[in-house]
Amino acid sequence: MIKAYKKLQSCFSLKDEESIFYPNIDKLKQTLTQSEIDKTELVNENERVVEQNLFLLESLEAKTAEISYQKENYTHEVERQRELNNSMRKEKDVSAQSLKVVRKELESVKTEFAKTAQSSNKEIQLVRDELANYVQTAKKELTALEKTKNREIKQLESKLEQKSQVEQILRAELAELRAIKSSKLWKVSSKVEKLSNAVDKHAAKRKKLSQDMSLLYTSDLFDADWYLETYSDVQKDSIDPAEHYLLYGANEGRKPSPYFDGKWYLQANPDVASENANPLIHYIKFGREEKRPMSPVMITHKKK
């Protein structure tokens, strides 16, 4: 057998590894595993292809159903369009007849309008003449009002100048009073005044009254000239207007100026009324800083 094998081996030029008698087992295992992997991949690929085919079939069925639905809608739409065309034709015929009627009516209206236009032109001319007369009279009234307003403005300017002069005088007097208060003589006189106040009870009230009077004269909310012009009885009694307002006017509900309403101020601020304080003095000292309204006119002006 050995000799026969050697003879056979000499006949074939095969290597030992490639011979049938000496097979490579590892390679065989690798080929087997690879073939199994290929088989599984083929099976998976076949499943994917089947799924894709099923999806394509479903989409085709849906598309065919949609196309059939669209065809039905299209046929319905065509029928509806035909019906609309027929109705439009009928309406055109009716509208042509109605247009003829409307044209006849328009012609009759034009003739009536031409007649009324002539009469209305006369009426318009009369209205224009009336308007021209009204404008002329209004211009005359406006010029007269302007003249009166200019006079009032000049009077107010003169009053303001007088008030500014009075303010300057009062400020100078206040400066003198401060200088007097800082002097030794004033200290002595203050001691004497304290003694006299103890004797005379009315001196303190008189001092407070004079202080309040000076406070009123320095305020723009007290108009002495307006007070005397408005309340003629005060002018007849020949009493100082500030003194009269502090002693009697506020209690009687009189106004210190057209810009301040003391009666309304006390009604709007019951805490001030309970203190029995003068409304304008309270407003100058405290109400302005507390932003209290001084009259109903001021509230409406703020709302606007």
Rank of each mutant, 00 (worst) to 15 (best):
A224S: 13
Q34R: 13
K3L: 15
S108W: 05
W186R: 02
K7I: 14
S257K: 04
R48Y: 04
N85L: 14
I37R: 05
K187Q: 13
N276G: 03
Q30S: 08
S108N: 11
P256M: 00
E58N: 14
K285G: 07
E107C: 04
S164Y: 08
L42W: 08
Q267L: 10
R48T: 09
G287I: 01
Y69S: 12
R82S: 14
S95R: 15
K187L: 10
A179V: 00
V102T: 15
E72G: 04
I67A: 15
K263S: 06
P296K: 03
S196L: 08
Q136E: 06
I20R: 10
E47Q: 14
E47P: 00
T40W: 04
D93I: 10
K303G: 03
Y227I: 04
E173Y: 03
M88Y: 11
D129C: 02
T75Q: 13
K236A: 10
H244I: 06
Q52W: 11
K39R: 02
N86F: 15
E41H: 07
S13P: 03
A179T: 02
R254H: 03
Y248L: 07
K39S: 01
S295V: 01
K304E: 10
D233E: 13
M1H: 12
V272T: 08
L280G: 00
S158N: 14
Q235F: 01
K154T: 01
R151M: 11
T148Y: 07
A204T: 14
N46D: 08
K71N: 12
T31Y: 01
L160H: 09
N73E: 15
K187G: 06
A144I: 10
P241D: 11
R171Y: 14
K184R: 06
E112G: 12
F113P: 01
C11T: 13
E141A: 13
S274H: 00
I124Y: 06
D200G: 06
E152N: 13
E51H: 09
D225T: 10
D93W: 12
E161P: 03
Y217G: 10
D16F: 00
K27D: 07
F222P: 00
K115L: 14
N44M: 00
K139T: 11
D223L: 08
K291M: 04
D225H: 08
V199I: 11
L266G: 01
N86A: 15
S98P: 00
L221Q: 03
R292N: 04
A175E: 09
K6F: 13
M88V: 14
D16V: 05
W226T: 07
T64Y: 11
E107Y: 02
G262V: 01
Q235W: 03
Q118T: 14
V94Y: 15
